[in-house]
Design a binder for these strands. Structure first.
Length: 577
RNA sequence: GCACCUGUAGCUCAGUGGAAAGAGCAUCGGACUUCUAAUCCGACGGUCGCAGGUUCGAAUCCUGCCAGGUGCGCCA
């Protein structure tokens, strides 16, 4: 609604049509933020070449037709033909004030689309690692953002709940006893359970034989085996939900759509692929060979849909997810928030699905590639002993470190309040660190940096919000009662108000690009604009009551935006810090 | 060998074909009698991996090369 860039684009575009002819009325006016003004329009330079005239003359013709008196204070042609646009203070003020009464805080309502998001996807009876952490946090932020934009989001937690390991896991569960402390480990330390099963499998031929038989029983649908399998899944759900609760992730049991969900579809998928000639038997396995996919020594890379032993692999279940999400869920966008190394696999799955007709024109699958999380040594994050780090311990350590910092700085607060702040800050820091860099690149995990109160961190944004709340508390004013009117005089006021207008566009950009770090960058800029304002513009001590009211309105809008933005990222904003 | 990703300040990272490439950290120098100094301001810091090409204009697009990472048939 109040996106200056969009409004200016429309105005400049109609000026283009008026100045240069109707055939230019659709031309992109190329509005960009400017270091010399608020915005600049760069269209004249590109058009000058096309119509064979001097760029500055073209710019002058555009400006002559440009009707922006109601929103621009200054329009200036500069350099080789840039059109610099400076907004009117009263226009910015009115827009910022309008945000206060907008329940959407400027976030646009888009045409609803059904979007399936595949994210998190931990394995039953296995520890979640930092890679799962990142897909969980990024996927959840995307789900929140797309919902905020008005879309119907269907979360799909594709947990690993099927396959050969369940033979040994079930036998180990039986050996240990279903209600034993060993079984309880699945809820708290699943890797300990898994490793124990693995060791027995490796050491005991008798156990291994039982495990293999158990896999056959599982696939055959033996009721008692299925009951034990369900037992393991249920124990794991307890573990997943503990992690999700700690992380403030929106996933629930109703979002679970694990591999086993698709079992019934798999034979039909293979049959159809074979019947249509898309798949063929090779070395005993049913494979799809696609053009352009070659591996070592130029050999074609297969997508194996049925193994030579008759079993199904993840290629088949992934094909089933496409079919299910398109046909049953009616999804028009399929998001796979999955590790970057799976890129080749996914492209093969999608191309196969296209050939088979399961992925119609107009339905776009997107791989939101998640880069690895590295330790300070530049290698994949592990403990000193080389084992993967337990996610719960990692989160606890973040909270613990935050606890120390809060205790040092806020001895005046009672322990329960400090603990609550430490939780919000510690967890927020970890999540924000995952979100604030491009999701597809690797990044270096560093507690000290993510917990810092300076720089582009979660705590810095939380602190900005806490300072605003502190002002309202101290002034005995309810942020909801701040109405303005907003009047801009100080440069820091203007900067802050202008920054506020960028929230809706930033959220829309995340929805379009699926890059949550853009929202982080925006919120960091906003927090910096607020901090500058905080230093220069007293609110409670403002001599003029009108200035005081205006500043209350500005910081109320800032608070609303920061809290809404952090919420879209899944990060809490504590009352005080 | 093939494919994908990455290469930007000492470090961690942004950067929509537009003007003189940005931020944070670190370093150095400043600012608390004033709404939270867990903050802020200033300075320093660059052959945007290399070489070509396209363009009025390239960190951005194309080609080649170099370096690092990842993946490449029955685990998922």
């Amino acid at each position: 609604m109040a996106d200056p860039q969009e409004i200016l684009a429309a105005r400049v575009q109609s000026a283009l049509g008026a100045a240069l002819g109707a055939e230019f009325a659709e031309t992109d006016p190329v509005i960009r933020p400017s270091q010399f003004a608020d915005y600049q329009a760069n269209a004249a330079l590109a058009l000058a070449k096309r119509i064979g005239r001097a760029p500055r003359d073209v710019a002058a013709d555009i400006v002559a037709q440009l009707d922006v008196d109601d929103l621009c204070r200054e329009v200036e042609i500069s350099g080789p033909g840039f059109i610099n646009l400076t907004l009117r203070d009263d226009w910015i003020a009115a827009q910022a004030q309008a945000l206060l009464s907008d329940p959407r805080a400027g976030v646009p309502q888009q045409d609803p689309e059904t979007v399936a998001i595949d994210y998190s996807a931990p394995n039953v009876a296995k520890e979640m690692h930092v890679g799962h952490l990142r897909t969980t946090v990024v996927g959840d932020a995307l789900a929140r953002v797309l919902e905020a934009l008005g879309h119907r989001v269907v979360r799909q937690n594709h947990i690993g709940d099927w396959g050969t390991p369940f033979g040994m896991l079930i036998e180990h569960l039986l050996d240990a006893g279903e209600d034993s402390p060993e079984a309880e480990l699945v809820k708290t330390d699943p890797n300990a359970f898994y490793q124990a099963a693995r060791e027995k499998f490796d050491d005991s031929a008798e156990f291994a034989a039982r495990a293999r038989k158990r896999v056959v029983d599982l696939q055959a649908g033996d009721p008692e085996t299925l009951r034990l399998w369900q037992e393991l899944v249920d124990l794991s759900k307890v573990y997943f939900n503990r992690i999700y609760a700690k992380l403030d992730v929106t996933l629930t049991d109703s979002d679970l759509a694990g591999e086993s969900t698709y079992n019934a579809m798999l034979p039909g998928i293979c049959e159809e692929l074979e019947r249509t000639g898309i798949a063929e038997i090779s070395e005993g396995a049913l494979c799809v060979f696609l053009e352009g996919f070659t591996g070592r020594e130029g050999r074609p890379v297969p997508l194996i849909v049925r193994k030579s032993d008759g079993g199904y692999g993840y290629g088949t279940t992934d094909l089933a997810t496409v079919k299910y999400r398109v046909e049953q869920l009616g999804a028009r966008r399929l998001l796979y928030v999955i590790g970057a190394p799976q890129s080749l696999h996914l492209r093969m799955v999608w191309q196969t699905a296209r050939k088979a007709g399961w992925l119609p024109e107009g339905v776009d699958p997107v791989h939101v590639q998640i880069g690895n999380v590295l330790g300070s040594d530049g290698k994949i994050l592990r403990t000193r002993s080389g084992k993967p780090i337990r996610l719960m311990e990692l989160l606890d350590e973040a909270v613990e470190r935050a606890t120390t910092v809060v205790a040092d700085n806020r001895p005046d607060l009672d322990e329960a309040t400090r603990a609550s702040i430490a939780r919000d800050v510690g967890i927020g820091a970890v999540k924000y660190a995952d979100l604030s860099v491009s999701h597809d690149t690797e990044y270096v995990f560093d507690y000290d940096r993510m917990l810092a109160l300076t720089g582009n961190t979660g705590p810095y944004l939380q602190y900005a919000a806490a300072r605003i709340r502190s002002i309202f508390r101290k002034g005995g004013v309810d942020p909801a009662s701040a109405e303005g009117p907003v009047v801009l005089t100080e440069p820091a006021e203007r900067e802050l108000a202008l920054a506020l207008l960028g929230f809706g566009p930033a959220v829309a950009a995340v929805g379009a690009t699926l890059e949550p770090h853009r929202l982080c960058s925006y919120l960091f800029d906003l927090a910096q604009a607020f901090t500058a304002f905080f230093e220069q513009c007293p609110v409670l001590q403002a001599a003029d009551p009108a200035v005081r009211e205006s500043r209350f309105a500005l910081i109320a809008a800032t608070l609303q935006t920061l809290v809404a933005g952090l919420d879209l990222l899944g990060v809490r904003a504590p009352e005080q810090m």
